[in-house]
Amino acid sequence: MPIATHASPHVVEEEIKRSRFITYVAHTPSIASAKAFVEHIKHIHSDARHNCWAFNAGAPNSTMLLGCSDDGEPSGTAGRPMLAQLCGSDVGEITAVCARYFGGTKLGTGGLVKAYGGGVKLALSKLETKVKIPMTAVSFECSYQDQNIVDALLNETEHEKLNTTFNSTIIMDTHIESASVAQILDQIKNATQGRVMGKVKD
């Protein structure tokens, strides 16, 4: 899943018929972080006429974690065009906020849609992204004689070791690529003849 490279926002500014549109986009991995980012930009631009926003806090094609606001602009002219750009970008976990400083000339509904949607489109075109691989927390308890088998099979898939505890047995806490969890659990179970059973954590 492509996401923004880091949480620091990317900013673009346009002047349209003397109104200033300052658009911020940033990586926000949850609804809470998306709302916090919106409030942060609204605080920075507390003197703006409008601070319109949109977010998709999930995967690029998800429709479960969305939100938007026109913040006083005519209904449907700001938040929805901004959200449409986010949802069509193939980038997930992202929020856009656009501060508008009114320049005295009304743009009409079509002009507003173009301005707000266009600002997000421009910001996204300059945004650096990276691929986020969904991971699942899995714990393994094994004997010392089975450690090499478990390690070897884990090394065949995308994973991250979080913590390893050595006592009478070895407990490995890991993150494993979600798409590979079922396969790796079966492989380890079979290779150790059922001695090692991975436990998926909530």
Score class of each variant (00 low, 15 high):
T129Y: 12
I133S: 04
V150N: 01
Y144N: 02
K130M: 07
V138G: 09
P134V: 01
Q147N: 03
S143A: 12
D151L: 12
G118L: 07
G117Y: 04
S139A: 11
N148C: 07
G117M: 01
S125M: 01
E141P: 05
Y144H: 07
S143K: 04
V120G: 05
E128W: 06
C142H: 07
E128I: 05
K121Y: 15
K126V: 14
L153M: 00
E156D: 10
T129N: 09
D146A: 07
Y144K: 00
G117A: 01
V138F: 06
D146T: 04
G117V: 03
L122E: 13
N148Y: 08
E158R: 10
Q145W: 00
A137V: 02
L154T: 04
I133D: 07
K121P: 10
T136C: 09
V131P: 08
D146E: 12
L122D: 12
M135P: 14
A137W: 11
L127E: 02
D146P: 04
L122I: 12
L127A: 00
P134D: 04
I149V: 11
K130C: 10
E128P: 14
C142E: 02
I133C: 04
K126T: 15
K121N: 14
E156V: 08
G117F: 02
E128D: 13
I149Y: 00
Q147P: 02
L122Q: 13
Q147F: 09
N155W: 05
G117L: 02
F140T: 06
A152T: 10
E128Q: 14
V131T: 15
D151V: 06
L122H: 07
F140N: 06
V138K: 08
A123Y: 01
L124R: 01
A137F: 11
K121T: 13
E128H: 14
G119T: 03
K132N: 11
E141Q: 14
Y144P: 05
S139D: 08
L154V: 02
T157K: 13
L154Y: 13
L122N: 09
E141D: 11
A123W: 02
E156P: 00
T136Y: 06
L124H: 03
A137H: 15
C142N: 01
G119R: 03
G119K: 10
I133A: 01
E128C: 11
S143H: 04
G118M: 05
E141T: 15
V131M: 09
F140K: 03
I133V: 15
P134K: 07
I133W: 12
G119N: 06
K130S: 10
N155F: 06
Y144M: 03
T136S: 15
S139T: 13
Q145V: 13
A137Y: 13
Q147T: 06
T129D: 06
Y144D: 00
E141Y: 13
N155Q: 13
D146G: 08
S139E: 09
K121L: 14
V131R: 08
T136E: 09
D146V: 03
L127G: 00
